[in-house]
C-alpha cells in the first residue's frame, strides 16, 4: 500500500463517520460500510473503517488478539496511534479473540465520564446466534439483535456496565462490513 489510512481521507472518513454516527444514535441498528477498499486479514472491514475514521496520534489503543503484532503494526502504520498494554490507559480497545470483561477497561471519571474506553469487539455473526432485546435512548420502543461470538455472560456484562451510568464503556460490535453500536446507556431487557 502506498498510502496510509484512507486514500481520499476527507470523503471516505466522512462517509464512514456518518455510518458510525447513525449506529451510535440508533443503538442496535445494523449499519453496513460500503467501502471495501481497505482490508487487513485479521480485522473486519467495519473495524478497519472505524480505525481509519476515529484513531490518530491522540488515541491510545489496546489490542487483544491472537495476531496482536500484525494488528499493532497495521494500526501504528495507518493511524500513528500509540499502542498500550494497559487497558485502563486505552481510549480505544480492539478485541478480536478471547473473552473479555468490561470492568478492567477505563470507565471514565464521575466528573469526566467521556474519558472512558470505546471497545471494538469483532464477533462472528450478526444474523444468527443468540437474540437480545435492547432498550435505551435512541431506541423507539425496543430493538432486537442477534449475535454470535460475543463475550460470555454478555447480557449481565452489558447491564452491569449500564448500571454504572454516567460512567461505563461504549461498545462497537463489528462483523464483516457491519457495525452495531452499544453505548453505555443501553440495557438488554431480554
Amino acid at each position: 500500500m502506498e498510502h496510509v489510512g484512507f486514500k481520499n481521507k476527507t470523503f471516505e472518513s466522512q462517509e464512514a463517520f456518518h455510518l458510525i454516527l447513525q449506529a451510535t444514535a440508533n443503538p442496535g441498528k445494523k449499519v453496513k460500510f460500503m467501502n471495501h477498499n481497505y482490508s487487513q486479514e485479521d480485522l473486519h472491514i467495519s473495524s478497519v473503517n472505524i480505525i481509519f475514521t476515529l484513531l490518530d496520534l491522540d488515541t491510545n489503543v489496546f489490542i487483544q488478539s491472537a495476531q496482536e503484532n500484525i494488528i499493532s503494526n497495521f494500526i501504528k502504520l495507518h493511524t500513528g496511534s500509540p499502542i498500550t498494554k494497559n487497558k485502563v490507559e486505552s481510549d480505544f480497545a480492539i478485541v478480536t479473540h478471547g473473552d473479555l470483561d468490561f470492568e478492567s477497561f477505563n470507565d471514565g471519571l464521575d466528573q469526566y465520564p467521556d474519558k472512558s474506553t470505546t471497545i471494538i469487539i469483532q464477533i462472528q455473526s450478526m444474523s444468527e446466534g443468540e437474540d437480545f432485546v435492547l432498550s435505551g435512548p435512541g431506541i423507539k420502543n425496543s430493538n432486537q439483535i442477534t449475535l454470535r461470538g460475543i463475550p460470555h455472560n454478555f447480557k449481565e456484562k452489558i447491564n452491569s456496565n449500564s448500571s454504572k451510568f454516567p460512567r461505563g464503556v461504549d461498545i462497537f460490535l463489528t462483523c464483516n462490513d457491519e457495525l452495531i453500536s452499544l453505548p453505555r446507556t443501553i440495557k438488554i431487557i431480554n
Binding site: 458510525i20 454516527l21 451510535t24 444514535a25 476515529l54 465520564p113 467521556d114 472512558s116 470505546t118 435512548p137 435512541g138 451510568f165 454516567p166 461504549d170 453505548p183 453505555r184 446507556t185
Partner: peptide, 8 residues
C-alpha cells in the same frame, strides 16, 4: 460527538 451521544 460520539461520546456526547453515549452520555446524553
Amino acid at each position: 460527538i460520539l461520546k456526547a451521544i453515549c452520555i446524553p
